[in-house]
Design a binder for these strands. Sequence first.
DNA 1: AAATTAAGATTACACACGTAATCATATTGT
DNA 2: ACAATATGATTACGTGTGTAATCTTAATTT
Lengths: 123, 123
Amino acid sequence: MEISKAEFEVMNAVWQGAPCTAADVVARLDNQTDWHEKTVKTLLNRLVKKGALGFDKDGRRYLYKPLFGRDEYRIKESTSLLNRLFDGRVSPLVSAFASRKQLSQQDIEELKDLIKQWEQTND
Amino acid sequence: MEISKAEFEVMNAVWQGAPCTAADVVARLDNQTDWHEKTVKTLLNRLVKKGALGFDKDGRRYLYKPLFGRDEYRIKESTSLLNRLFDGRVSPLVSAFASRKQLSQQDIEELKDLIKQWEQTND
DNA sequence: AAATTAAGATTACACACGTAATCATATTGT
DNA sequence: ACAATATGATTACGTGTGTAATCTTAATTT
């Protein structure tokens, strides 16, 4: 199951708080995009058909809810990118950023903390 | 400029060694895919139109060459993914992998080395 | 009760994409 | 010289995507 760019924005809006109505999603997206309400409804529909969203009926409205979490999606997308571009591993990605001077002192501190955590848990 | 999945495979083949002919690309892809020669030519054409590939004429053949490097592309795609999914920073991505037990001892070692390098260069 | 509104369902439509086949033409083999 | 071949160009065609408009029907307003 593949989610398009526009569909992802809608998922994001739903992840912000579910269950939620189509009107909620439209309202949440109003800040980020200038999509017509009809456009948003179309995308909700497609996401339901794709199995990315489910819903319960509330009268004649739908209460939408995501069928997988943001974290799950993040990992799936990241793994896919790492596989396509970085031999499936994290460090070549970090390395690419490092050699492009794309890492800040803060990034480094955060990575060091993560490593410390990991070692406490895994060693 | 956006490159599709299939187009990316072709770029990969060209990055393997450029300049190269369409026949070269077809041959290189023959291992990974079972695309028809015509399909590959179509993709080469589209990549030229998109400005991802250039070429010099060699008689009536083209010698294709990439107009941007693999590294450049990797950074662009990764930055885009980080922006969409991880607040634009590297460490939340690493963190997501860590909390999913998706990091190996080797990954950690590589990250530590990278950090050491970075600190030698930047401190 | 009739008219308006609002929800989701269906339809629309141009452009991208995957996956070729056909066309035009230059080169090569016989 | 003519036929076969190889190269890039053009055309094809179903499916996905961005971006809605229209349709159907239930609820709300007057």
